[in-house]
Design a protein around this nucleic acid. Structure first.
Length: 614
RNA sequence: GGGGUCGUAGUUCAGUUGGUUAGAACGCCAGCCUGUCACGUUGGAGGUCGCGGGUUCGAGCCCCGUCGGCCCCGCCA
């Protein structure tokens, strides 16, 4: 028989009572986290979102409550009335903030019972959590875990800090529609059928890009929004089909102003939420430099192990695989794993398999090891290498020197197309850092990456696509080159060299924000559509309203969007985006709790004029 | 679309060369217990070995297929 709450109110949460509260009469409410029954008295760990407080029910002093306590089970919801009493020295629990006291119960109200949980919330050893699919099915239970409670609240604080930052600086929060129109550029759209306009569809925003630019044309000057975005693409550990961005835009703005706001916003969030102070001025790196030194446009600066170019040393080599790579304008680069010359054949095979995922043909290596029979007292060392036969001792020594090898080091070499070398060595660098624990978990290393390329070359179609989005402005310095590339068919390849006023904010190897200064002049915009192989007509069909808008007095403007989840992942120290979302989906974009996506009623489909084939 | 990996009790896992009745811990149920906080203790219940097919005298284990979780490549302007 359950009790009713009536007008009873709690006086305290389960996380706040301390020695100073001894003697107070209190009412606590929460979940039974644990019960320890000693016959004549019973301990209950009562949990709410703020913590755990031990309450004790004695048969001697509270006969009725004690009888009720007998029937309590895990996760029952109860209210207890009682008195805060000090625990005896030796009976204190130093693991709990409330461990100096306990509540001596006079009355228990059983507000609700609970089925036995399908998995245990907290397990000894803490890492033996139930399988994630089980926890996702009962997400509301998993969310009771203190860790997830903390993450979700951290996220709330981060969003609050963002609003605080932009409100204070005169930005106006403007909501934009969720029901938009599909455009062919970019990610696959989620699509919503229109009932009133049978056969037509809305699309959910991949980002509010065009709308935020329109707020600039509308004269709001400074806009921001915490915007939900939707992309129907395959998922990753840091990607969900729907996610949240801080979206901002400002008028009369150049890059430096955007950098300032990116730094300012993240610095505010990290200080406010995590007590972490990031540098007032973030280091900067061009895209080209980041790719050259780290093989990534989002380098993790918490450790070194930079890429070293060996192409110079290998120029004119007879070794056919390297010669052909250099001939076709590829690269040969390496990283040096300090002190890892003891890697086994098996480990090196694993690493080779790892880089092959990124298109690398092979992974060559050089080891600086003790000579057979020991190095003696002079500490000498010799080089061994998978390339010894192919290149000879002298050349291996040259390479080792170029790589800056010392005794005990392992050099890992990849040759191939520039994009393959960068991707494979960039990923290998991170893989080794993880394996060898080279990453300082307490460090936060932000970076602004600048001068992104304007276009990406698609090797299969030999076409150029917008690297950022089709409204990104080219750099002033590259404007002439841009015009030449577009207008002179024979110079089309120059598009690959045009840099954009596009930039990213990177923290600890995560792309946390990205943005650009936009094109605000119609002739440049027209040029860009042409560069992208879009005819005037098709550009009009897709973006006509926007092109019109650009012609009614568009101020220079730009901004950025920041990933709320990725930012929170860093703040929460997790590598899993689901840890910072209340109700996430699986890697196959399903919600295991509500079992979505689901079927819809035939009548519903009929009303929409939709028939399912197959 | 492709690759890797996992799937055995409610949960986390073990399960040898294919061989009798598939085990452990936690949880659960019942009892005992005056200071626990990973309480202790006695007893008990609990299994479609993801699913389907095959090989075999015999399959949790081998083979084929399939479903699902996670991670990665492609993809994500």
């Amino acid at each position: 028989m359950l009790d009713v709450l009536g007008t009873l109110e709690r006086t305290n949460t389960c996380g706040e009572l301390q020695a100073g509260n001894v003697g107070e009469s209190v009412v606590l409410m929460g979940w039974v986290a644990k019960k320890r029954d000693f016959g004549v008295f019973t301990f209950i760990d009562l949990r709410d979102r703020e913590g755990v407080t031990q309450v004790v029910v004695s048969e001697e002093t509270a006969r009725e409550a004690h009888a009720k306590a007998k029937g309590l089970r895990g996760e029952f919801v109860i209210a207890v009335k009682g008195e805060v009493v000090a625990r005896d020295e030796g009976a204190k629990n130093t693991k709990l903030p409330t461990g100096d006291i306990e509540v001596k119960v006079s009355e228990i109200l059983v507000l609700n019972d609970a089925n036995v949980l399908p998995f245990q919330l907290e397990v000894a050893g803490s890492e033996n959590l139930a399988a994630e699919d089980t926890r996702l099915k009962y997400r509301y239970l998993d969310l009771r875990r203190p860790q997830l409670q903390h993450n979700i609240r951290t996220r709330a604080k981060a969003v609050a800090a963002i609003r605080e930052y932009f409100d204070e600086r005169g930005f106006i929060e403007i909501e934009t529609p969720i029901l938009l129109k599909s455009t062919p550029e970019g990610a696959r759209d989620f699509v919503v059928p229109s009932r009133i306009h049978t056969g037509k569809f809305f699309a959910l925003p991949q980002s509010p890009q065009i709308l935020k630019q329109l707020t600039m044309i509308s004269g709001f000057d400074k806009y921001y929004q915490i915007a939900r975005c939707f992309r129907d693409e395959d998922l990753r550990a840091d990607r969900q089909p729907e996610f949240t961005q801080l979206d901002m835009e400002m008028s009369f703005a150049h890059q430096e102003m955007a950098y300032r706001e990116m730094q300012g916003m993240f610095n505010h969030i990290f200080a406010k939420v995590g007590g972490i102070s990031l540098p007032a001025e973030w280091p900067r790196m061009t895209y080209a430099e980041a790719m050259r030194r780290y093989g990534s446009d989002k380098p993790d600066l918490r450790f070194g192990m930079e890429l070293v170019d060996l192409s110079g040393e290998l120029a004119g080599t007879d070794f056919a695989p390297f010669a052909s790579v250099l001939e076709s304008k590829g690269e040969i680069k390496c990283i040096v794993a300090k002190g890892k010359a003891d890697y086994s054949r098996k480990q090196l095979d694993e690493l080779q398999e790892f880089v092959k995922r990124y298109g690398a043909g092979a992974l060559a290596w050089i080891k600086a090891v003790e000579p057979e029979g020991g190095s003696g007292s002079d500490g000498g060392w010799v080089l061994t290498s998978s390339l010894l036969k192919a290149l000879g001792e002298e050349k291996i020594a040259d390479l080792a020197k170029a790589a800056g090898v010392e005794k005990g080091d392992l050099v890992l070499i990849v040759a191939g197309r520039k994009s393959v070398v960068a991707a494979s060595l960039g990923a290998l660098r991170i893989e080794i850092a993880k394996r060898e624990n080279l990453i300082d978990r307490a460090a936060y290393k932000p970076l602004i990456v600048t001068e992104f390329p304007m276009f990406e070359h698609d090797e299969e179609t030999d076409r150029y696509a917008a690297a950022h989005h089709p409204f990104t402005s080219p750099m002033d310095e590259d404007l002439e080159k841009f015009k030449t590339a577009v207008n002179d068919e024979s110079q089309h390849h120059l598009l690959g060299e045009v840099r954009a006023k596009a930039y990213d904010a990177v923290i600890n190897g995560y792309e946390c924000a990205g943005g650009s200064i936009r094109i605000h002049q119609k002739d440049v915009q027209a040029l860009n559509f042409k560069a992208l192989g879009m005819s005037t007509e098709s550009a009009r069909v897709q973006f006509g309203f926007f092109l019109d808008a650009l012609e009614y007095g568009t101020p220079p403007h730009g901004g950025f969007a920041a990933g709320i989840e990725r930012t929170c992942m860093i703040l929460c120290g997790t590598e899993n985006i689901r840890d910072v979302m209340a109700f996430p989906k699986t890697a196959s974009a399903q919600d295991l709790m509500m079992d979505s996506p689901g079927d819809v009623d035939g009548a519903q489909l009929k009303e929409l004029g939709i028939a399912i084939s197959d």
